[in-house]
């Protein structure tokens, strides 16, 4: 479905062509973004099978609703939004994920969590094997509320801007910022257990 001649075509041109029923143009859009969408789906769902479903559902939905895509945002931001919704829906359906509560109002007040303050080594991750490190990072990120996790994944792993993240998650910019701070601090807290410098066990409460 994809041909190499499409590889240098502008995204907006491809979207316009796809809207006119050019299936090769849509195929090229899929080819451009499937890796990114699959990656963020893995990070948000923390489950390979769910991520595969999310990938498929995202592009099927995008194709179905292509006429609803407004040219004022990037196509990528638009499909990220679809993907995040699909991923969060998976989490909601998965009964084992007790942390899911999307309607919960989150207090963004002052009680930012900082309990453990201990310095880390310069490249603490290098003390772990790839598998060990993956396990540590997965466990930490899995413990975050899905909405915090989504903000962190989009901002810090997929490197979307604050505004793009707000658009993709249907949140305000201040809400993205406060959730990002909380997510970062919670992960920092969890990782400190593994990464702190030996003998540097100072605890403090702020």
């Amino acid at each position: 479905m994809t041909v190499s001649s499409q590889a240098n075509v502008e995204e907006s041109t491809l979207v316009a062509q796809a809207r006119d029923g050019n299936t090769r143009a849509f195929g090229e859009l899929v080819r451009r973004y499937e890796g990114k969408i699959f990656r963020l789906a893995q990070h948000i769902t923390q489950n390979r099978e769910d991520a595969e479903d999310v990938l498929q559902e995202t592009f099927m939905k995008a194709y179905e609703h292509l006429d609803q895509f407004q040219g004022n945002s990037k196509f990528y931001t638009w499909i990220v939004r679809i993907a995040v919704n699909q991923a969060l829906m998976k989490l909601r359906r998965r009964k084992t994920d007790k942390s899911v509560s999307l309607d919960e109002t989150i207090d963004t007040g002052e009680d930012t969590i900082v309990r453990e303050i201990a310095a880390w080594d310069e490249n603490p991750e290098q003390k772990f094997s790839r598998e060990e490190l993956g396990g540590v990072l997965d466990t930490a990120i899995q413990s975050l509320e899905p909405l915090y996790r989504s903000v962190f994944v989009l901002r810090d792993m997929e490197e979307l801007s604050t505004e793009e993240t707000a658009e993709a998650l249907n949140l305000s910019v201040p809400a993205v910022k406060s959730r990002l701070l909380r997510a970062r601090l919670q992960l920092r807290e969890k990782l400190t257990r593994y990464f702190k410098r030996k003998g540097d066990d100072a605890f403090a409460y702020l």
Binding site: E34, F38, I141, M157, E159, R184, F195
Partner: peptide, 28 residues
């Protein structure tokens, strides 16, 4: 806190994910 939070972000940025498996790609 600033130093360890910065390192947290950096470590997650460097984390890799599985590429799209060929069978998943062809199913899509």
């Amino acid at each position: 806190i600033a130093d360890t939070t910065r390192k947290t972000i950096k470590i997650y940025k460097g984390m890799d994910a599985y590429p799209v498996p060929v069978d998943v790609q062809s199913r899509l």
